[in-house]
Amino acid sequence: MKTIITLPDFTKTPTVDQVGVEERVARFQTRSIKKESKVQGLKLALNMIDLTTLEGKDTEGKVKQLCYKAAHLHDVMQGLPTVAAVCVYPTFVKLAKKQLEGTGIKVASVATAFPSGQSTRKVKIEDTKFAVANGADEVDMVISRNEFLEGNYNYVFDEIAAVKEACANARLKVILETGELSTLDNVRRASEIAIYAGADFIKTSTGKIAPAATQPVTLVMLETIRDYYYKTGKMVGMKPAGGISTAKIALQYLVMLRETLGDAWLTNQWYRFGASSLANDVLMQLQKEQDGVYQSGDYFSRD
């Protein structure tokens, strides 16, 4: 059955009040997560991580080690989940796919001239097709911020739609790079464009621009997802990425998710953390909940 979705006018997206958003975020931060709900939340957070390496100095060796870590977070602890996915550059997709065989962990690839997106449509499509042909389960694309800031919303929309087509069965995460969009009104507008153009996930940042993910930005994106769900009944995923390095902050993000979108989104099917160092802090907290004392960082493998 096909649902007909009318496109909104992207020049007239709903307005956002920054002060109000910050106040709401402060309320999420004061939620006190203790004991069994902390353990449950931490395990959920672990299972939502897209373990990421996106460096010019990435090598096969580095990617192999990261893939092993993804499946074996901390083998001395029982009952730990794996991360959701490993996120790499397209050239490492084939390798990662092989390393992760049989683990259930997905391989995500950035594409479309990541991180700046400053390239031609043709190159971006090729980039995407290459990643998918190598076996990427998920594609993390960047939007053309230059076109967006010039007001060429249709260009941005068409580009996302074209990449979505190139993705075939791979799920598409659309990176808005909110650190370059400057206002929450822009974040709202870019989120709508990405969602209506076919994004399976919307994602805050590349991790290459400061600020990366922030809670106010994430809340505005979640509210856009909710409004789309209200209108169409279709779910879209969310991925804050970059800057989420402690378990405490990750739990605040989950509180926000729980109280904005609810139960259905509390799974790695619909929510991810893009992070490289978050996993170890979560593990350290889980170990502390189990033993009652903190351990040194040297007891947790760093990759």
């Binding site: 203790k34 709900s37 909710r226 729980r258 509390l266």
Partner: peptide
């Protein structure tokens, strides 16, 4: 009029807050 009747599942969540 709201266009679809699907509702969010909020409040009584599978992940709830322990007393604090």
């Amino acid at each position: 009029k709201p266009q679809n009747k699907k509702t969010l599942s909020l409040g009584k969540s599978k992940w709830s807050y322990a007393p604090s």
